[in-house]
Design a binder for these strands. Structure first.
Lengths: 265, 265
DNA sequence: GCAAAAGTGTTTCGTTTACACCCATGC
DNA sequence: GCATGGGTGTAAACGAAACACTTTTGC
């Protein structure tokens, strides 16, 4: 079966830049190419768009097919339309980026050849995917000011240091612990997870240690991601206990509706 | 001559959302469609991408062909890939937006059917261009925080009230004159145009009116745009005299290189 | 002449930054 | 027990917002 047009039509493909966070590093999901061109190199999950689906649908379908990761939301990064970006034929790629919770990062069992790479240790990629990755990082850094997207990268509950490390990793800067917490709390989007007993009475309190109640907290789940490179020393230094917070989605939706979200750093 | 593929390929088109500013309103450039579909309706300039050009090149070429406007820079808005957005065949459109100086807005002589519309008075558009316009406006409002794009919409020199009106129009808010000026001057991107004599001695100065020098200023050029709707009362209230400023492109480039530009409102 | 626009500084307030000590954890 | 991480408040500095009066312009 063949399809004929009066004028040449490029093919349209999608690519997904999926970011994850293991508590220490920002990761990106790659697949190893099983066929030419660029066979054996790493690339973003993605594939050709079908005639009866939108680019968004295509991106999500391909992501499931290639990595087992099922997402409901992706943000478009843009179209990449360089004339020679694919050696086979003219291919315009519409790229998306997405953020996934750390808990989902090992779900991809379909994904024999899918792996997470630290964004700092990404190998040379197929096609123009190096360029696409740089653009995705740029967009991510920008987007984080207008959307509390950080929370998409964390699990159900998280500690303040985890959240801070996430922001520091994405933005490449360091924050003062106390000021960071204040800023985050001022947003009104996160609240402490209720505990049976107070963790301890604060340094400025009159209460003394002998009055501390029993601590009822589950151990922090160690965030894990598959490791592409085993030579890296285990820097999974996360997992210390700490007061947990969770994200209030209702307030976020409300804020998003009004378009008032804004965070400065 | 025909082009045959093993799988169906959508067509790829580009659309240009070109913004202009007449000193009072934010305008957008539209063309009247001369053929089906949507014949007689207004739409963004644009057209089908050739096989040997990138989307950026296509957008600029089509803009020249249809409106006579030659631009060197456009920002990509994104790809619009709804399955039914074009009744003829499957067409994916890559949209761009651009800002033009007020002086260029009447240059399009090729453009018999091209006209500027106030963004508040845009008629119903062809295809999904209403949606594209909304997205472009969103992007414009966001972009203005990270780029001094406002200056692309103004001429060689401008008065502070003009600049302020521009920002107020785009963002839909009002600013205090004095604080706005302070903020703009703090950026270090604009400087007063040298004058032979001071305009007058300020209110807080010891000097009095009898000491005022001769004023050497050209009359402010009245910014003009073709008017699509003649029923609108003439609100071309611009053109009062005032101290002029100009934009320091070198400092802007320097700032952009460092990535430090940021303006808060 | 008059109404509306434009030019100019200072004070107040809120936000951001800088900073220190004690407790908890994991080895 | 010791080193590191984590939890908490306050004071100083900075930046943003509020605000009034005079001159200029265009009718």
């Amino acid at each position: 079966m063949e399809y004929t047009y009066k004028y040449p039509h490029p093919a349209i493909a999608t690519d997904c830049v999926v970011f994850g966070f293991d508590g220490y590093e920002l990761k990106v999901l790659l697949i190893e190419r099983g066929c030419e061109p660029y066979k054996g190199m790493w690339a973003f999950p993605g594939g050709f768009m079908r005639i009866d689906e939108s680019a968004e649908q295509c991106a999500m379908r391909e992501l499931v097919e290639e990595t087992g990761l099922k997402l409901t939301y992706m943000e478009q990064l843009g179209a990449f339309s360089g004339v020679y970006r694919d050696p086979r034929e003219r291919v315009v790629s519409i790229a998306f980026y997405a953020l996934v919770k750390s808990s989902e990062v090992n779900g991809g069992d379909d994904a024999a050849q899918a792996q997470w790479f630290s964004v700092d240790k990404v190998p040379q990629l197929a096609f123009d995917h190096d360029y696409i990755l740089r653009e995705a990082m740029k967009k991510l850094r920008q987007a984080i000011h207008f959307n509390p997207i950080g929370f998409d990268l964390l699990g159900e509950s998280f500690t303040m240091p985890q959240l801070q490390r996430l922001y520091e990793t994405i933005l490449g800067v360091q924050f003062d612990r106390r000021n960071f917490q204040k800023k985050m709390m001022q947003l009104g989007l996160i609240e402490p997870v209720e505990e049976e007993q107070p963790r301890y009475y604060g340094a400025h309190s009159e209460m003394k240690s002998y009055d501390i109640g029993v601590l009822f907290r589950e151990p922090t789940s160690f965030l894990q991601m598959s490791r592409p490179t085993d030579d890296s020393e285990d820097q999974q230094t996360m997992g210390r206990k700490g007061r947990k917070f969770h994200f209030n989605k209702e307030k976020y939706d409300e804020m998003k509706k009004k378009g008032t979200f804004r965070i400065e750093f």
